[in-house]
Write a protein that binds this DNA or RNA. Structure first.
Lengths: 219, 219
DNA sequence: GCACACTAGATCGTATACGATTTGATGTAC
DNA sequence: GTACATCAAATCGTATACGATCTAGTGTGC
């Protein structure tokens, strides 16, 4: 057996939250999930607690777990956190990125540009995720890398990261990506890369906030 | 009962790791801890897994948990992460800090200056923790705040944060604190405060790295 | 009609029990 | 003496069982 049951349970619930099968507010009952998996509740408990630690589910003692509710505040906080961490990860990863990595990232951004013309927001969002992952995945600091990945997972679970909510950002986003790629290719300073990446993310966040009639983020 | 047993177990083990009773490499046996607490192993399991998620313990399947080993790399990674997160937390908290908070922080820094003259590194380290906590604790973003607190806990568990390892940094550290306080008092921009806080932390990290004959951190 | 006590069902929290896995020691072949 | 197989002890992983707690619905008094 390669995986323990608690890992299987974790993978199952996690996947369902991220892909939307369990939507926010959905009640996660230990017994039900255990039955579905054909195991007892103990491993399921452990999985749920792990998900709680990641912020994907909300847990109340003696009451149970629900998929974390999304409100504007949560989105703001998650994006703000990612705005701090991801640029750092990208900057740290930059020196480790060779021609091959850059070429892949460039190809992804080109594909995004194509999506713009085809009005395909779903594919655009998907490519956007891949593009960013391409940039930060080489980050040599495992803690930072882990935090970035958790942030993206949270966003995916909230399905608020989709560009369907802020369509006008898509075009500018592609251009900011291009700028970032050029900085990395030119071996710009860590600070410059981090700053460009943060500007990109802050712009997205503020575009969302402006649309929701909320004050822009301080970071 | 205000606390569940798993929470009690978590608090106990966590406290012992942080205060050094369980030193790095210490083998955490579920049954033994359960016996000591007068409960079964199930709540202890949950506590250990939570600690694993925080990076305080290392867990291997079917083998067990040990208190996380400290090596230079781990210290570097933890400090680097904190160097990214804490300045952001401080900058976000700055606008929420009123006169009272600033006065407390100033008092702590003054006390640190006194410790310098008394050659009391233990008290200095303690005050340093309190000073930083004073600065970031008002951070309005709970995710970021949580990450900062975890980072400090990790450092405490590693006991590498102590100024006994880099005594010459103490004096400069106090001055950098002072500069930071002045920026906050003058309502400097978020960016300036974040930058000053990051410089402070990067300096400490690099002082450690230089002493260990390692290359300085990119961030 | 409203507030409060009570009850039943659902669900969680934990203890106990036992099978599964790892580890280190012992023994055996070469 | 070394390498490998075997075995026993330690420890973890999970199932089951039962008590504790919460929630919602019902009933009673006012």
């Amino acid at each position: 057996m390669t995986n323990s049951k608690s890992e299987v349970a974790y993978a199952l619930v996690s996947e369902r939250i991220v892909n939307g099968a369990y939507s926010p507010g959905y009640r996660l009952v230990l017994g039900t999930i255990a039955e579905e998996l054909g195991c007892s509740v103990v491993p399921v408990r452990e999985a749920i607690r792990r998900l709680e630690a990641e912020g994907l589910v909300h847990f109340t003692r003696n009451v149970g777990a629900t998929v974390a509710q999304v409100d504007s505040t949560l989105y703001l906080h998650t994006m703000q956190t990612l705005a701090v961490i991801e640029p750092a990860a990208t900057a740290l990863a930059a020196s480790a990125m060779d021609e091959t990595w850059l070429a892949k990232a460039q190809a992804l951004n080109d594909a995004m540009r194509q999506c713009l013309e085809d009005f395909d927001p779903v594919a655009f969002t998907e490519l956007n995720n891949e593009f960013h992952q391409q940039l930060y995945s080489q980050c040599p600091n495992p803690h930072i890398l882990d935090l970035v990945q958790r942030g993206w997972r949270r966003l995916a679970a909230m399905r608020a990261s989709s560009f369907t909510h802020i369509p006008h950002r898509a075009k500018q986003s592609v251009e900011e990506h291009q700028h970032l790629l050029e900085l990395i290719a030119a071996h710009a300073s860590t600070k410059d890369i981090e700053e460009a990446a943060r500007t990109h993310r802050t712009n997205t966040l503020n575009a969302y906030l402006a649309q929701a009639n909320m004050a822009p983020s301080a970071i």
